[in-house]
Design a protein around this nucleic acid. Sequence first.
DNA 1: GACAGATGAAGGA
DNA 2: TCCTTCATCTGTC
Length: 170
Amino acid sequence: MNTKTGLVEFPVTTDEGKFIARYSEYGLAEIKFPKTEEARFAGRPLPPGVLAKIHGWHRLTEAALKRVLSGRAAGKLPPLDWSGKTEFQKSVWRELRMISPRKTKSYGEIAEAIGNRKAVRAVGGACGANPIPVLVPCHRVLAANKRIGGFSSGLDWKRRLLAIEGVFLD
DNA sequence: GACAGATGAAGGA
DNA sequence: TCCTTCATCTGTC
């Protein structure tokens, strides 16, 4: 979606595998779960100044990712590039970032928190459109009655991330 | 404008 | 309980 300057990719090696972080010149734009493919530079080359800035962001991303994957709060994050996203999606993702580790909320609670209690299905849609999983903790959102609901990157990852934080589901 | 979706609630078996 | 149906809201095409 963001093709203004192209995105640059960097790998983040963790105990859970090698994540891929993608950056635009505006900030962290995407995180990909570990796959078999190797990380590589993508898009057009960026100016050296921008690249240096991204290196700094990447250090923050790497540290935050490792903190979350060890069951702690993400802490300081680089700027997030949510350009091209709707206000509704951004408000949902802001709300997700306010959920503490080991805590979960339902889609209905998120909908209520953003002031639109009936928009529960839309919240699910916004979660599915979340380009920055883990750091924007969509895995902490469960369906009503603590059912696991869904997860764009696979329910196995959702269970795994919750288990890391000490949340176990039936 | 129609349709689909990571939901929730209500009603019936 | 479990299943089905319907209401509701947003994003995408």
